[in-house]
């Protein structure tokens, strides 16, 4: 390239008018003199160095893992950084487990966002109601030997009876095995306890050890101590679905737990003796204020809202 042509090209470059091809020509020209560190040439050196920059190997791995996990579990909700972090911590072993056991095509995923509920009929005619922020996965069709489904969150199942093909709900390491029954299963990742409440039939429940839970019973699996405890079924376990809260001589301690779950608000009592008060009554589609109003009226309990918490105060109920 002659000097005049080159000068034109450089001038054009500084006017921001060169095409990409012309910029390549300039670069090729400068590259002929590697020691040239003039103000015209040096920026090209710099751009060339920048072009070679890549994210760290660890980061590339992180993204691959992330994608691997997303491919495996098909998480489709936003705001999942925490969950994904948890998945990553659990590690590749688990994700390979998922990939190898569920990676086959035909896995259906159903998710609900905060405040959303939905109902679905599975291929075997089982009906499932999903509470909010819940994810359900199942193969369509089910395998011949058994019906496997995976749950994160809370759902109520009315399982279509088929003794030849058990229905198994996987929640982490804990599984719930049934043939035909109706039950509520709550397994949110931020909660320490996995809660099963059986409405009809019987259910086998547990991880290493299993218990059989029958109609009207419940079971709680403590994730930290890995212990199963059987309890009477909580009548309000599926209040999220029925919109009904029923209390029958229920202690305040349990009432508040139900209300916390149902309304997503925390409670505190000024005097722990209040927790032993009992209340009987049924609410349908009630607001929190209505429920607290009725309980307060019958037990002479007051409530105030402080810092996002409902604080209950009043005299203890002994002798009433």
């Amino acid at each position: 390239m002659d000097k005049e042509k080159l000068d034109d090209l450089i001038a054009k470059y500084y006017r921001g008018e060169t095409s990409l091809e012309e910029e390549e020509i300039l670069l090729a020209h400068y590259n002929r003199v590697p020691s040239d560190l003039s103000a015209d040439r040096a920026p090209f050196l710099y751009f060339d160095a920048k072009r070679k920059e890549e994210p760290s190997a660890a980061f590339a791995d992180r993204i691959e893992d992330l994608m691997g996990n997303m491919l495996a579990t098909k998480i489709t909700r936003l705001g999942l950084m925490l969950r994904i972090a948890a998945v990553l911590i659990v590690g590749l072993g688990l994700s390979w487990y998922f990939l190898s056991t569920k990676g086959a095509s035909g896995i259906q995923i159903l998710t609900t966002k905060a405040g959303e509920q939905t109902r679905i009929v599975l291929p075997d005619s089982t009906v499932v109601w999903l509470n909010e922020t819940t994810e359900l996965q199942y193969p369509d069709p089910f395998q011949e030997q058994q019906r496997d489904i995976w749950l994160k969150g809370e759902a109520y199942f009315e399982v279509h009876s088929n003794t030849a093909q058990p229905f198994i709900v996987h929640t982490g390491e804990v599984s719930t095995t049934v043939v035909g029954t109706a039950f509520n299963l709550r397994s949110y990742e931020n909660e320490q306890t996995l809660a099963l409440d059986v409405t009809h039939g019987s259910v086998r429940f547990g991880a290493e050890k299993n218990v059989v839970v029958v109609q009207g019973q419940g079971a709680r699996f403590d994730l930290k101590h890995r212990e199963i405890e059987t309890t009477p079924s909580n009548p309000n376990a599926r209040a999220w679905k029925t919109r009904q809260l029923a209390f029958d001589g229920t202690a305040m301690r349990d009432i508040l737990l139900d209300l916390e779950r149902y309304f997503h608000v925390p409670f505190e009592v000024e005097d722990p003796a209040l927790l032993r008060c009992t209340f009987t009554g049924t609410f349908q589609n009630a607001t929190l204020e209505e429920v607290l109003g009725a309980i307060g009226y019958s037990l002479h309990v007051h409530y105030t809202l402080q810092g996002g918490k409902y604080i209950l105060s009043g005299q203890n109920c002994e002798g009433k």
Partner: peptide, 17 residues
């Protein structure tokens, strides 16, 4: 560089959804 990596990770999550 670290913030850039976090940013790109966030972008990939958005893209995936």
């Amino acid at each position: 560089p670290e913030e850039a990596e976090d940013c790109v990770q966030e972008i990939f999550l958005k893209l995936w959804t």
